[in-house]
Computed example of a mutant assay.
Amino acid sequence: MQIEQYGLKECEKIRGGAVVVDVIRAFTTAAYAFAAGAEKIVLAATVEEVLEIQRSLPGSLAMGEVGGMPVEGFALWNSPVQLQHMDLSGKTLVQRTSAGTQGAVRTRNATHMAVGSFVVAAATVRLVQSWGVDSLGFVITGSEANSGGYEDAAFADYAQALLEGQTPDAQTYLQRGLRWRESYAHLQDEWTERMLADLALCLEADRFDFAMPVQRENGLLVVRRTPPGW
């Protein structure tokens, strides 16, 4: 399998399988949402699109951020800490973030797609293997966000090692994500503390044994978790 990494500007070039990566925090948050019982997550590019989709899906909840900050009118922030003790059983979420969901929306030519992060790493690798594709692109969404994409590239390198049959030490790759701290040194203490709490949940390998494949459903970009025991 040919494996390459792409940024947000190049991800349209992917024609085979794609894993859109946002470790901190979109697709760690998504994994926590599924662990809390969410049925599906619809991905959107803009706040306006989220609100439009939400109106068309009664009972759905808006989730995400703009510039890393909560959005007025959204029920949920882009925070795994916020979700870890919630009950979202059967809920549909509509997610917009500044990096992760942008990558998914732009990766429009892939034959197969999943979103991924460290908390679902091994399951994501199993999903990719089940596709039987000849080429795979990892979309490093953080490359144009504040983090510089360090943790997303680390995830891609870790997943590639697993795909190649190696037995890599996850901690070596997780440590690369700690560079994220430097990007938020300018924030107010309250937000810095909340984001650092999220960081602890984001930099954990294989907390959940499910993957997050993406499909087009009625014109919407929909993420669902793989079923138990898949």
Rank of each mutant, 00 (worst) to 15 (best):
K91E: 11
R225V: 00
G177P: 02
D189I: 15
G16I: 11
Q54A: 13
V133A: 11
K9M: 06
E10T: 11
G148I: 11
L203S: 02
L88N: 03
E204H: 06
L43G: 02
E52M: 10
E193A: 14
D157Q: 11
E10H: 14
A156Q: 07
A31E: 05
A75D: 02
V66H: 03
F138I: 01
G90K: 09
D157A: 15
A156G: 01
S135A: 15
W180T: 12
P228M: 05
R225H: 05
A200S: 14
L43W: 05
L61C: 04
Q84M: 12
G165T: 02
V128T: 08
A62R: 02
R126E: 15
A153C: 06
R126S: 14
R25M: 07
G67Y: 14
D189E: 15
E52C: 03
G64H: 04
N146Y: 12
F208N: 01
T226A: 02
L93E: 01
S79P: 00
S60D: 02
Q166K: 14
A35F: 01
E10I: 05
Y6V: 11
V125K: 02
A211G: 13
E72M: 11
E48W: 04
A185H: 13
V47W: 10
E193K: 15
A35L: 01
S143I: 07
D134I: 03
G17T: 07
L162R: 10
G148T: 12
E190K: 15
D189M: 15
L199K: 10
T97A: 06
R96K: 14
W191H: 13
D87E: 08
A75L: 03
E12P: 09
T167P: 09
D22L: 12
V214Y: 03
I3N: 06
E12S: 15
A197V: 13
D206K: 00
D206W: 00
Q102Y: 05
R216Y: 02
L187K: 12
L51C: 03
S183Q: 10
A99M: 09
L196A: 02
L203I: 09
T111G: 15
M195K: 13
M1E: 06
R55M: 10
A110G: 11
Y32N: 04
L136Y: 03
E12I: 11
Q5L: 12
Q215V: 13
V133P: 00
Q171C: 11
R25L: 04
A38D: 08
P70H: 12
E182V: 09
T107R: 09
Q188K: 15
A30N: 01
